[in-house]
Amino acid sequence: MGKGVCVCQSEKFKQLEQIIAEQKGQPGSLIPVMHDAQELFGHLPLEVQAAIAEGLDVPLADVYGVATFYSKFTLQPKGKFQINVCMGTACYVKGSQLILDKLAEMLQISVGETTADGIFSLDATRCIGACGLAPVMTVNNQVYGQLTVESAEKIIQEYLLRARRDINANL
């Protein structure tokens, strides 16, 4: 582990302290703090949960309980590009399962997993309310609609090329 990582992490924990200080004492502040923490760290590892518990003065068990109850909170790191294939009814009846299967096959991961290189994570998501464009998927916050198995595959290929370009540029 390089030194840079540690500095960056401690910087994040400082920011987390600030988030907690701003919201502590407000009724029901645990979930909003956890949203902000996940935004900051990308996921909620045990250290982060412990910091939240201590900062807000709630038992760690409560933080863990909330983190594991809601599907938006994740204990595992997600990919740089988070693919969410919508499994709402409108998308399902229009074949989103086939798209999900294809992407899983293409990325060689199961649904809910992240690729070994950390570039992609693949999830089935609840209805995102873009039913008029079914079937849809999102990559990070970008929504792609009226998909076919082929077009979905093509979109992910483009992200893959982009990620590779970025890696090469950083070398």
Partner: peptide
């Protein structure tokens, strides 16, 4: 919290 799939 509009959770019903297919309703937006």
């Amino acid at each position: 919290d509009e959770g019903d799939p297919g309703a937006y």
